[in-house]
Design a protein around this nucleic acid. Structure first.
Lengths: 140, 140
DNA sequence: TTTTATTTTGCAACTTTGTTGCAAAGTGCT
DNA sequence: AGCACTTTGCAACAAAGTTGCAAAATAAAA
């Protein structure tokens, strides 16, 4: 894990620091998406709030993570797939938010259906957010 | 317009007040979605920030407006269609955000494609956010 | 129409969330 | 190890959102 994390950072031309390693590890260990507050909690206040903000921002710029649209006011982030590089993000994402446990899943293997837009509208990116009950919570 | 607005409020068992009437009118006049800040600006600080927060919250609860997921951290709201009632929102929404003018359109007449979920996942609501260039900005 | 009960508003104070500048510490390179 | 450069943490600030409560507005009743 340490290696994957360090390599990712180097590949993105970022210096390998404690905070970046730790925060990136959180994303690798997490099944779902993470918000700023989650990371603050996970790290036990080890890092300054500002550092976390800046790290997340850097990761987004470098194409390591992407932000997920939410209805409540919390930005959540998830790891990008390997072929997401700087300035070359995936154009389509599908996310599933579980109403019970609150986990946000990034469904990489689901294809996004094509949407028929009104005349004159040009689509560049499509985000789908499905909410409901996830596999785990449905079996309780 | 006055009538539609007042009737909507009464139908939702809300007392008809200046702020509610004005704010609901803004939604009827606006082609796109509105954020808290938009309403504050439109009203020229006529109403307290707190009143606007509470009014929007009430409208969401009563099924008069709904919130739209966004990638940036700003909650935006749009009018619900007529058959949205308290506790009985539409299950599906499709929104288009123009990258040029920033307007968020609520595309009511576009059908939402069905999404194939992993086994065990149950979908309750689907939100689609398409971003790109709207008809107006594409013709400049 | 006036009175009364209930709801809504505005204010003040506060919490949470996000941003910026800058000195100190850490990283990468020779 | 020493030097250039990047990143971090602190402090101060700005913006966004929340809560309690008294005053004002609305709705309903007399």
């Amino acid at each position: 894990m340490q290696n994957i994390v360090a390599e990712t950072l180097k590949r993105s031309q970022l210096s390998v620091t404690d905070s970046r390693k730790k925060i990136l590890e959180y994303f690798h260990h997490s099944k779902g998406a993470l918000a700023h507050a989650d990371i603050e909690r996970l790290s036990g206040e080890q890092f300054d709030r500002v550092t976390i903000y800046r790290t997340l921002q850097t990761f987004v710029e470098k194409g390591i993570i992407h932000s997920i649209p939410t209805s409540d006011n919390s930005i959540r982030y998830a790891l990008c797939k390997d072929d997401c590089a700087e300035g070359h993000h995936h154009d389509n994402h599908i996310h599933f938010v579980c109403d019970v446990c609150g986990t946000t899943f990034c469904l990489d293997h689901v294809t996004i259906p094509n949407v028929q837009l009104p005349a004159g509208f040009k689509s560049k990116q499509t985000d789908v957010i499905v909410s409901g009950i996830c596999g785990k919570c449905g079996n309780i």
